[in-house]
Design a protein around this nucleic acid. Structure first.
Lengths: 192, 192
DNA sequence: CGTTTACTGGATCGTTCGTTAAAAAATGGA
DNA sequence: TCCATTTTTTAACGAACGATCCAGTAAACG
């Protein structure tokens, strides 16, 4: 009963995610979103609530996507340690080839909205997912003898996640290449 | 000739720096600044130009302060390697005890204004200063035999600067403590 | 087919934005 | 002391903000 939606909320949410990702929360206006999503202002409010609600849903979607991509990337057949090392390289390449310097939406959110509880929950969930997935893979690596027994997979995973945030930040500066590449080199040395 | 300034531009700039640091660029309004600096809008425009100019000057001041503090901290008498290790610990402690989660103004600027050339120059200058100072200290450490001869002080310094950015990001999330402490542990292990 | 219901698109709400203009106040040299 | 010059203060500017409203439209159901 009633008129059906004439747009795909999923497509619209993804478009909003891209815009917020590129411009940040404060610098994105509802009018920017209207233009980018191709919807009337009323439709956006009807479907998603206000600007903040839309942002939170966009971050939530981002976390889901990221988690999925991470699972795929870490469950390659073969050496678990090599999978993590590949992830480090992949992450750096992604950061360096990001021409419009949008960085990582989780990093951006953590930095721009540290006091927003809702945003904090999504950031927490995303970071935790990375930690858990990487730690699990490193545990497999240790069990396979690829990693010395005295190394702590969880601590290593947290270290890598933290370094990833740093890589995303440095990749937004003019000095990106030198810093990111040298950081990857050191990180790979740690994953001996 | 003419009326003399009734405020100290240096004090005002520092107050502006604190406010931008805490709230970010977009989320800080000129009215916030008027209240925080205790000046009329006209006085701010007369002394510093517009909002963006004031922000850039605030970042510049921040870079000068940070460089100075870093020089002091790395030129302690005694072991150069221990000075760098101490810096890592100090940086993490500072990040964790930052109750209002303002993070590092350079990190925040890099993330929020990656496309601003003026801001980029200050960020570049700050990051480069950290790199140079840490690398020089690590070079001294290597010369003193505290660091294996095959370690690259410059690459290590860049790695540390990148990790510092990550620490500043993670310290803004609800998961701060676990991630920061484990990252420090790993970094100190690298600085064997 | 008509009624009901929900969505659409654009106008418009009051507020706040960064910036500017102009008058009042204060300084130092002539 | 009085003028030239600068700063201070306050009000106001046009534009843009997030949010809301509403007439118009289209789909589903009796």
């Amino acid at each position: 009963m009633g008129r059906t939606k004439q747009f795909d909320p999923d497509v619209a949410l993804r478009a909003a995610m891209e815009l917020f990702w590129r411009k940040g929360y404060e610098a994105t206006s509802m009018r920017d979103l209207v233009e980018c999503l191709g919807l009337g202002q009323g439709s956006i409010y009807g479907a998603f609530g206000g600007k903040r609600e839309l942002y939170l849903k966009a971050v939530e979607r981002y976390v889901e996507d990221a988690r999925e991509s991470l699972v795929t990337r870490l469950s390659t057949p073969g050496s678990p340690l090599e999978a993590v090392r590949g992830l480090v390289r992949y992450y750096a390449e992604t950061a360096l080839s990001d021409a419009e310097r949008r960085g990582c939406l989780l990093t951006n959110t953590a930095v721009e909205l540290p006091a927003d509880e809702g945003a904090g929950r999504h950031v927490e969930s995303g970071m935790e997912a990375m930690e858990v997935l990487i730690a699990a893979t490193l545990t497999r690596a240790r069990a396979a003898g690829e990693l010395p027994a005295d190394r702590d997979p969880v601590a290593l995973a947290r270290f890598l996640v933290t370094l990833f945030q740093g890589i995303r930040v440095m990749a937004k500066t003019p000095l990106r290449r030198r810093f990111v590449e040298d950081s990857v080199e050191q990180a790979l040395a740690v994953l001996a």
